[in-house]
Design a protein around this nucleic acid. Structure first.
Lengths: 146, 146
DNA sequence: CCTTTATAGTTACATATGTAACCAATTGCA
DNA sequence: TGCAATTGGTTACATATGTAACTATAAAGG
């Protein structure tokens, strides 16, 4: 036993990040899950569509800018289109691509969930000082550059 | 549209954490997945058993100290016991509880994976200065107290 | 042009994960 | 005691997720 060196999970970065990230995501997800029947993937897709509403983006773009895989996105979209929260047109010039947009109903949901998410984030960040918050942003930029 | 305020995912903490955490965990998992056929859950269970080898802990304790749910732990243990990496005895005084330990084979795997995980962590943290590393530790302590 | 190769997206299958119900042993307490 | 409530753990079912194969369209190159 003396020659084994067990990992101290409680100081191990990947482990701690995963715990933290899960706790936070789950907490938020539980809310929009319950109130709007959205999965996390669906909500993320909606958030992206909201941001790029001006030009109406394709599924591929949603996938690449959320780092979700295209199958996950496809499924989320299928469900969002079925529930009429997202509209899907065919791209004029390229019939493979779709052109995705939040519908009025989609915006309605978005406008409820977004503030809810922001509030949650604020509550979490309340544990940190202003300096720590800045530092965290910087650290994240270095560890996971966008 | 003007009255909607889309979430800026790239500055949204829960989102960034989840991306970062996934990237890191996946990277490490891919390795022990491929080489040893371990899922992340299984590896975590092994890591915990390694740490508490002196007294031999129960499944419940594994679950509570990894924040995984008991079903996940139960399944991981079933697989680890089947592959002879973990031994399971019945607790003397309480026949519901099990007493879990890494086997010799289990330790062998552990001693390969643990350094691998540590190396990965080091590589990630290499992007940060010493001060940033300290800060990160402190921030994690505040956000997800153990 | 016509064939090859790449891309957008979906489908099908296998695997993983979460939830609830369950069994067995234990504890609490009337 | 003895019976209800709790706890450790597993099973069964539904749902989610990942991987590979597939369809349709488009781009590239002879």
């Amino acid at each position: 036993m003396a020659d084994h060196i067990p990992l101290e999970l409680e100081h191990f970065l990947p482990y701690r990040l995963s715990i933290l990230s899960n706790r936070i995501s789950q907490a938020i997800a539980r809310e929009y899950q319950g109130r709007f029947g959205l999965t996390m993937t669906e909500w993320r897709v909606m958030a992206v569509l909201a941001r790029f509403d001006d030009h109406g983006i394709s599924a591929r773009e949603v996938a690449s800018c959320t780092e979700m895989d295209k199958v996950a996105v496809s499924r989320a979209l299928a469900s969002l289109v079925a529930s009429k929260r997202v509209t899907r047109r065919m791209h004029e010039a390229d019939k493979r691509r779709s052109v995705l947009r939040l519908s009025a109903a989609g915006w309605k949901v978005h406008d409820k969930v977004a503030p809810l998410a922001r509030t949650h984030e604020r509550e979490i960040l309340a544990a940190l000082s202003a300096q720590e918050r800045r530092m965290l942003e910087r650290i994240l930029d270095k560890l996971a550059p966008v």
